[in-house]
Structures are given as structure tokens and as C-alpha cells.
């Protein structure tokens, strides 16, 4: 079975030689990555997820209860309320990233791909927030938006809009969007870089040909470049989806705490998972319910990735041809 995809086209000599080489190289290429990944990621995670099928007893032992914890999470009113609230907050977060972060990243990348003067400097500086730790980002934005420090208010005042200032992070109506925008500020560099790399990889001949056809710069972007970078946009979208469920935790935890203040308006799957699994003040960690939340998180992401692989990517590949 060891053969390359091009067997049919390969000359007979080449085929013979490959047979002799055997398949050892495949093992050599795969083994280190598979081993490290299995030992230090898959095994510990499987250990944890397995716990979702058990319930803990007082003496520390556990008893198998099948899907009982899942039933609790989805049908017990207190758990279900928290779960769906966190889930819908995650969707809002995802939505903000899709309509603000990714289009902004696309815009910046498109402008940078025109190779303006100082392009390198812009690119480098816009990427700076992405490099910062959430500890730092959280602290910076809390300061800027703090009613006490008054930076945001003074800045708004400078453009005559001081009246607009609100303690955004503290209001249920605006806290989630504010946190999302802070996250956009931090991470917009990633889609920008990915899209930029895709844009400048487009062969010049294609663009020259379009120009000869009399297309304007704008039309070239929409009709030639954009379809060509669709696979990259697909990757950006799916990474945004995954990051929204996993990476969003750190920022929200550092700015709004483990309870997603105010009044759970910024509670996401990550914070729910963290306080369930590890506990919070007097709430004791419950590894079994925590593992249940984690498994649900896993299924939600799995569904998204499956949809992406099944639909989006297949269609995109057809586009490419």
C-alpha cells in the first residue's frame, strides 16, 4: 500500500526504487510528532474527558453513571441556564470577531499588499498587541476604560464626545462587546498576516492580465484576488471559531473574573469550564462536571470543524480549480 499519489505517472524505474526504500521514512517522519502529541496531549485529555462519565463520591472514589452528567448539564435548570448563557455569549464573541476582526484584517492586509511606503513599519506595529500577554492586555484596557483614571473619557472629550463615555466593562449591556473588541484589538494581527501572506503569493501575471483586461484596482481585488485567497479566509474563519471557544478564556478571566461579571454577561464556555473544573473561592472544583463541560466544548468545536471540512473547504477547493 505504500505508494505516492503519482504512481500512475511515475516511470517504472522510479517505482522500483521506491519499493526498495520501503516505508520506513514514513514512520520516521510521523513518529516523533505523533508520540509527543499522544503522550502529552491526547492521553491527558482522554483521561480528563473519561471523568465525565463518572460521578465523584465523598471518599474521593468515582462511580460510573453513563451520560448522567450530560443530562444534568443540559436539563437541570441551573446548569442549563449557565451552559446556554455561556454558549450564546461565545456566539456573540464569534460574531464580533467575524464582522470586525476578520474584515479589518482583510482591509489592512489588502492595503499593505499595495506595498505602500513604510508598509513594513505599519505591519510590524499593528502586530505588536498580538504579542502581548493577556495579563498585560487586560491590565492596559482596564486602565484605559477605568472611570477612575479617565483616559477614555478624556480622549472622547478631545473629539467633543465626552458625553458618550460609559463604564462599558461594568454594564451588562456593553461588557461582552467591549471585551470582544479588546480581543479584536489584540488579535487582528493574525488574520492580517495570514491574508497578507496569501495576497502577495498571488502571481503577478494574473494581476497584469486583469489589468490588461481593463479592470480597475478595486475590481481586481474583488474579482481576481479575493476568490484566490478564499482558502485562507476559510482557515481564518475556522481558526477564529476554535479560538473563540478556547483562547477567549484567558482574556475574559483576566478582565472580568471567573464569574464573567457583571451578572454572567461575559461568561463563556471557557470561564464556566474553569470554575466548574477547578473551583472558585468556596465553590469546590468538580472534575466530573468540569469534564462534562469540556466534552461539550469539544463536541461544539467538532461540529464546527466538520461543517468547515465538509462544506466550506470542499467548495473552496472546487473554486481553486
Amino acid at each position: 500500500m505504500t505508494q505516492t499519489a503519482t504512481d500512475s505517472a511515475a516511470p517504472a524505474a522510479l517505482r522500483r526504487r521506491r519499493k526498495r526504500a520501503g516505508r520506513l521514512h514514513i514512520v520516521v517522519f510521523l513518529a516523533p510528532a505523533v508520540l509527543i502529541y499522544t503522550i502529552f496531549s491526547v492521553y491527558p485529555l482522554a483521561e480528563s474527558l473519561r471523568l465525565s462519565l463518572y460521578d465523584g463520591l465523598e471518599d474521593g472514589s468515582a462511580v460510573w453513571i453513563g451520560l448522567g452528567n450530560y443530562a444534568t448539564l443540559l436539563f437541570d435548570p441551573d446548569w442549563a441556564r449557565q451552559f446556554w448563557n455561556a454558549f450564546s455569549n461565545n456566539l456573540v464573541l464569534f460574531f464580533v470577531h467575524m464582522v470586525v476582526q476578520n474584515p479589518l484584517g482583510l482591509l489592512l492586509a489588502a492595503l499593505l499588499s499595495l506595498a505602500p511606503r513604510f508598509g513594513g513599519a505599519y505591519r510590524t506595529l499593528i502586530f505588536v498587541p498580538t504579542l502581548l500577554s493577556v495579563v498585560i492586555v487586560g491590565f492596559i484596557w482596564e486602565l484605559i476604560l477605568s472611570p477612575l483614571w479617565g483616559v477614555a473619557e478624556t480622549l472622547l472629550g478631545a473629539v467633543g464626545l465626552a458625553g458618550l463615555y460609559q463604564p462599558w466593562l461594568g454594564l451588562e449591556s456593553s461588557a461582552l462587546v467591549t471585551v470582544s473588541l479588546i480581543s479584536v484589538w489584540q488579535y487582528v494581527g493574525i488574520p492580517m498576516m495570514l491574508i497578507y501572506a496569501a495576497l502577495i503569493a498571488i502571481p503577478d501575471e494574473l494581476i497584469d492580465a486583469a489589468r490588461v483586461d481593463g479592470l480597475s484596482g478595486f475590481a481586481i481585488f474583488w474579482k481576481v484576488k479575493l476568490p484566490l485567497i478564499l482558502p485562507t479566509l476559510g482557515i481564518v474563519a475556522i481558526l477564529t471559531y476554535i479560538g473563540n471557544f478556547t483562547a477567549s478564556f484567558d482574556l475574559i478571566y483576566s478582565i472580568q473574573g471567573a464569574l464573567g461579571a457583571p451578572n454572567f454577561s461575559t461568561d463563556v464556555m471557557g470561564t464556566l469550564l474553569f470554575r466548574t473544573f477547578f473551583g472558585q473561592q468556596l465553590q469546590l472544583g468538580d472534575v466530573h462536571m468540569g469534564a462534562t463541560v469540556a466534552s461539550m466544548l469539544f463536541f461544539i468545536i467538532l461540529v464546527g470543524v466538520t461543517i468547515y471540512l465538509a462544506l466550506v473547504q470542499r467548495r473552496l477547493q472546487r473554486y481553486e480549480m
Binding site: 491527558p44 485529555l45 483521561e47 476554535i242 472534575v287 469540556a294
Partner: peptide
Amino acid sequence: IYMIVGIMVPIRLGTVAILKL
């Protein structure tokens, strides 16, 4: 698929097993 499944679960959950390891 096996290799990319790990994207979907925050590795932090495996903390205790990792620490024991």
C-alpha cells in the same frame, strides 16, 4: 484527523494527568 483533534480541546484540561506524568 487524529493529529488535528487536539485543536478542539484546551490542553489545560489534561493538567492533572500531565503533572503526574
